[in-house]
Lab assay of single mutants.
Amino acid sequence: RKEMTAACTPRRRIINLTSVLSLQEEINEQGHEVLREMLHNHSFVGCVNPQWALAQHQTKLYLLNTTKLSEELFYQILIYDFANFGVLRLSEPAPLFDLAMLALDSPESGWTEEDGPKEGLAEYIVEFLKKKAEMLADYFSLEIDEEGNLIGLPLLIDNYVPPLEGLPIFILRLATEVNWDEEKECFESLSKECAMFYSIRKQYISEESTLSGQQSEVPGSIPNSWKWTVEHIVYKALRSHILPPKHFTEDGNILQLANLPDLYKVFERC
């Protein structure tokens, strides 16, 4: 597991931080080997919608929660590849102030007048994250320049770009939802926020969305749709870069829909 690298990086740093090793061990302890084997050997059937997909393993048909699986995938990559990410360069710098204002204007932020003026909160978020810029760049390849612009994001899987519609809320939550006081809790909560931002979430995906850094293989055609990215990038990574937690067998994120021999018997009677 320590050699797990989802995106190509030129050289690998050895990380011996106790906090990170502890988080890696927790993933191992909570892992479910049968689910790992199923995901490793599954045959992708198709997307139901951005949140759900169908896959077959041996004779069984499964309904998989793409949102939760991708979130767990990105969390584990962030923990196992800690401080070893490439950088996704933004085509132009994104001012943190503008991103924070967009987030505060969104109902998702939960902002009320009692929280104070949005401009003041946005300025605080910019200054707060600028103070964390060195650590964010060093460990997470999340790059913020001296003017308070976001200029780079971590490359977690080759050819995958997170849904940038979720970027404003991500920046807001970096400042408000991460435990910045304790090292282990900081790395864990920061990785979880980043994983949620990178995950496939239906509120940020339309039929026209593209999450891939590449064009489709047909010359002159439109960019790959999110469905292509889910199948050929995300579920491909799920084959080798995730140890599913045991609770996925109990919380409805992986559901067995049918045993195909039983279905064949039904059709034979028709």
Rank of each mutant, 00 (worst) to 15 (best):
M4H: 09
A6I: 12
A6Y: 14
A6K: 10
T9G: 10
T9P: 10
P10Y: 12
R12F: 13
R13M: 13
R13N: 10
R13T: 10
I14K: 06
N16F: 15
S22L: 09
E26F: 13
N28K: 04
N28W: 14
E29W: 15
E29N: 07
H32K: 04
E33Q: 12
L35F: 11
R36N: 13
H40C: 10
H42D: 14
H42F: 10
S43F: 13
F44P: 01
V45Y: 01
G46T: 02
C47V: 05
V48A: 13
V48T: 10
V48G: 13
N49F: 14
P50K: 09
Q51E: 10
Q51P: 13
W52M: 03
L54V: 03
A55F: 06
H57E: 06
Q58E: 06
L63D: 01
L63A: 09
T67Q: 09
K68S: 09
K68W: 14
K68L: 10
L69T: 03
E71L: 06
E72A: 10
E72Q: 03
E72C: 07
Q76S: 13
A83R: 03
N84P: 11
F85W: 14
V87F: 05
R89W: 15
S91T: 10
S91D: 11
L96K: 00
L96E: 00
A100M: 03
M101T: 04
A103D: 00
L104H: 00
D105V: 07
D105G: 15
S106C: 05
P107Q: 07
S109F: 12
G110L: 02
W111L: 15
D115W: 15
D115H: 15
G116W: 15
K118E: 14
E119F: 15
Y124V: 10
V126R: 02
V126Q: 10
K130T: 14
K130R: 08
K130Q: 14
K131I: 14
K132F: 08
M135V: 02
D138V: 06
Y139I: 04
L142Q: 00
E143D: 08
E146D: 04
E147R: 06
N149M: 10
I151E: 08
L155D: 08
Y160T: 00
P163Y: 05
G166W: 08
F170D: 00
I171R: 00
L172I: 05
R173V: 00
E177L: 13
E177Y: 15
V178P: 07
V178N: 00
K184E: 07
K184M: 09
E188A: 04
K192N: 07
E193D: 01
C194N: 02
M196R: 05
M196V: 03
F197L: 14
I200K: 02
I200D: 11
I205W: 08
I205Q: 10
L211A: 09
S212P: 09
S216H: 09
E217V: 05
E217F: 11
E217I: 06
V218Y: 10
S221Y: 09
S221F: 12
S221R: 11
P223W: 11
P223Q: 06
P223A: 08
W228E: 07
T229Y: 09
V230F: 03
V230R: 04
V234E: 00
K236C: 14
A237V: 12
L238H: 02
P244T: 12
P245C: 12
K246T: 12
F248N: 14
F248W: 10
F248S: 12
T249W: 10
D251T: 05
I254R: 02
Q256K: 04
D262M: 09
F267G: 03
